[in-house]
């Protein structure tokens, strides 16, 4: 049901922009500016090492929270592995649970 109307909205708002079949199927999405295409910062086959604090800290904010996939742009599988790796790293005090220096 929402499909045809959404398609119409997309063709009206998006104009000749390249059609991306992965966009979330929401009528609100198209009214705003075309969402930026996420670029995966990692190769698809990149392994995730829980002992590498510097690498993992790229996927946490400065409070030490794990960033959502919306922002990191990695694949779903990588995000799951990242989350696990960050938790292992926290256990070994390689990464903080909560960073103290930022209030």
């Amino acid at each position: 049901m929402p499909r045809p109307s959404n398609n119409n909205a997309r063709s009206a708002a998006g104009g000749s922009a390249p059609h991306n079949p992965n966009t979330i199927n929401s009528p609100f999405r198209q009214k705003r500016n075309q969402p930026k295409k996420r670029v995966n910062p990692l190769k698809k086959s990149r392994l995730i090492d829980y002992l590498d604090g510097k690498f993992l800290s790229r996927f946490t904010n400065d409070q030490g929270k794990i960033l959502p996939r919306r922002i990191t742009g990695v694949t779903a599988l990588q995000q799951r592995r990242l989350a696990l790796a960050i938790k292992y790293a926290r256990h070994l005090a390689i990464l903080p649970f909560v960073a103290q220096d930022t209030r």
Partner: peptide, 16 residues
């Protein structure tokens, strides 16, 4: 240096 204190210690000796 530990990312947070463990048993009130701020440093640790890591063995892998």
């Amino acid at each position: 240096r530990l990312a947070y204190p463990i048993k009130k210690k701020f440093n640790g000796y890591y063995v892998y």
